[in-house]
Design a protein around this nucleic acid. Structure first.
Lengths: 249, 249
DNA sequence: TGAATAGTGTCTTTCAGACAATATGCC
DNA sequence: GGCATATTGTCTGAAAGACACTATTCA
């Protein structure tokens, strides 16, 4: 076991290790009025909610009604409650916005620039969720003007640093598409190969060759054919597939 | 532009959008005593500091001197100051521990389970840093017992959820090794191909074929030979390479 | 000349990508 | 029959992986 001290520094600050500083914070907390408490930032969870609608990848945004960024669109989010995990907070937020639960949800990144919110310091842990359009509850009616779906490649003006967040979401999504089964999360349990291809094309934002695509997904062995077909127009019905049981992202 | 309302919910909670809730929080903040402030968790930044020493990948840990987890080893970290970004906090922490700056640093993940720290709720944004062993300042002396380097595959008992954090770091590192030049961050500006291979083997924890490895890195074109060689024993000297200027991770 | 590490090439298999014609169902 | 989408196979080039011997330096 090698042992080498950390570099020294201006002494007074360095002698106090990180864990010591936490310990000091705890001791201070035992006082009833603690100025360091005011340094605690707000922590929120934002959830980028994505779905496939009309063969496009769309994101759910809410319209801001107050300063700052009044009138601009924002990724839905909210505060993390004291007794819930970050992921629980994200799932709660997701369910509040869409009524769905038990969907794919993954932590994306944490954004914490000191002035990203002009009101106070807000550190936001961003998650993204992939949901199937059919699982959404239908329009609430009086909320219709507040939340809307947008094509991810034609976004309105966004509040805060939410344009960066969405750009980063797409980057992550494209990366994961290659080596995971994440794309399947946007489809119903049974689906056609054309539908699967549409998901990939929507995420990658480029057309794929049909023969190569089918060859690739079928040779991986993660799909199995069902006996069902889907008729969707004046043409040949497509065979339905499902994920091989036991295979997960 | 399609527009569909978000799902309704138990009304009182749903009618209040996420941005509304933030707005409400701001209004409350204008009072001098605000109970919601107590819900703000502590936010820390932890930095997994990795380097190559003696052909092994090693991580810098600090020994805890107080409850909780007294005597166990922990990833160095500390609070985020009000006026610094998360990455700035990580760089400050890194410099305090090692004396180095301007090294590779990347946000890993944010851990925030409500009881991961038994004292209070602490949400930690974890970064990892890759540094070259030569850039480290030498042992401080009186701090030698507090911080130590550990072989990443032979770790001591760790405090908090730091075992999970280190496991996740290795996972990320292996993933990025394949499609980025991240491994180069652990080497001096000029290095031998054997040294580069040692870095890859240390991260992947498996031996690589020397001929295939050299073929692969040389055909990518990211390396260029220098006119220098390195003699390191009673044997043939090795040619030194450097990264082609302008290529970054 | 022995010890130690540096340096090099071929073959096989797999995967990615370019490319176009036939099949089926419905009107 | 005409329309619309479903379905299918070959070829080529690139990359990955298995595999072993020669070169150089110095004690």
């Amino acid at each position: 076991m090698t042992s080498e001290g950390a570099a020294p520094d201006s002494a007074s600050s360095r002698q106090q290790s990180a864990s010591d500083r936490r310990e000091n914070a705890r001791l201070k907390d035992q006082n009833s009025y603690d100025p360091t408490r005011y340094a605690h930032p707000s922590v929120t969870v934002d959830v980028v909610i994505l779905t496939m609608r009309q063969r496009r990848l769309e994101v759910l945004l809410v319209k801001r009604k107050h300063w700052p960024f009044e009138g601009l669109w924002a990724i839905p989010g909210g505060f993390v409650n004291p007794e819930e995990s970050l992921e629980d907070a994200a799932r709660r937020e997701l369910e509040e916005e869409t009524g769905v639960r038990d969907v794919y949800l993954e932590q994306l990144y944490t954004f914490g620039d000191p002035h990203r919110d002009p009101r106070e310091r807000v550190i936001t842990v961003v998650y993204y969720a992939l949901i199937r359009a059919e699982t959404l509850r239908t329009t609430a009616g009086d909320n219709a003007a507040e939340a809307a779906w947008f094509h991810v490649y034609h976004l309105p003006a966004l509040a805060f640093d939410h344009d960066r967040i969405l750009a980063y979401t797409m980057q992550r999504l494209r990366g994961k598409l290659e080596y995971t089964t994440i794309g399947f999360q946007l489809l119903a349990p049974e689906f056609t190969l054309s539908e699967l291809q549409e998901v990939y094309e929507a995420i990658l934002d480029r057309p794929l060759d049909k023969r190569n695509f089918r060859k690739k997904v079928l040779t991986t062995g993660i799909l199995e054919p069902t006996t069902h077909t889907r008729k969707s127009g004046h043409h040949r019905p497509a065979a339905l597939y499902r994920f091989r049981p036991g295979v997960e992202a």
